[in-house]
Nucleic acid binder design. Structure first.
Lengths: 140, 140
DNA sequence: TTCATTTGGTTACTTTTTGTAACTTACTCT
DNA sequence: AGAGTAAGTTACAAAAAGTAACCAAATGAA
């Protein structure tokens, strides 16, 4: 089992240093809002919602529910509210009957989905490794 | 309120198409393991653990608990087991008294932390916007 | 006229996941 | 003998998530 090389360690440490300075993750959430912001945006359901809104420019409640397989009305509606409050998505309701409500990414949400796609891409490439690791670990 | 431009939409859609093809997120988790793999790795506590292990090459249980502010023994121990099973971290126990257990990233974990750092960097840059959005939304 | 249908949710209730804090093991130091 | 230490575990309480029934308001069908 290889340990981390000095170079790798230093490189990563410098990056983290630059990013967090003195307000690092050791602080409680009140003093480290990044933690809170991140936990909303990278929540399992939120990421799926955002990915689907990156795929289709506009989606209505029931379409979202269909694409985000397995989500409940309750959680979908909660997450949409929070994501709207945080500025990732916008909600537009039209006074038709039955009512029509359209959700879409804001520009800010667009910029986030780009990042999220990179992470997802990594996941897509590497999930076979993870599954293989799980198998191996299961045998121990 | 700007809607998404055609270009942006098409670009993102192509990326998602390339990435997921027919086994997309509409499928239940059994058929879409990426969802499951991702929900483990991007869990709030897991990301903090991994970031800290990217910062320090080796950390013992109680140090991790100190850095990952607010985590409980129970959850820390659960997450460490899962992250080990998934291949991100390795656990080395030394039969001293009291026992010494060292956690560190595997090479695979190193490659993940790089991606995670990019996302975190985006969060660090953009969390002020999110906080501002929340304020604004709160007034409505 | 009465009844079923539609969308975008909400509500009450159950189950699962988290958090809290006390406890454990095994050896060493006072 | 009693206290301390590291790395957890365990029992119990609180919070979050899942389930499924319900709602409003108008439209179309019987």
């Amino acid at each position: 089992m290889e340990t981390v090389t000095e170079n790798q360690e230093v490189r990563t440490a410098k990056k983290l240093e630059k990013m967090f300075g003195h307000i690092d993750f050791r602080n409680p959430p009140e003093l480290c809002p990044v933690r809170d912001v991140m936990s909303v945006a990278s929540d399992q359901w939120s990421t799926l919602i955002i990915l689907w809104l990156g795929y289709f420019p506009v989606l209505r409640f029931n379409k979202l529910k269909k694409y985000v397989y397995g989500i409940s009305n309750k959680v979908l509606s909660q997450r949409l509210k929070v994501l709207e409050a945080d500025g990732y998505i916008s909600r537009n309701a039209y006074a038709e009957v039955p009512i029509r409500v359209e959700y879409s990414l804001t520009e800010f949400g667009q910029s986030y989905v780009e990042k999220l796609l990179e992470l997802t891409e990594w996941m897509q490439e590497n999930s076979p490794k993870v599954l293989a690791n799980r198998e191996k670990y299961g045998l121990l």
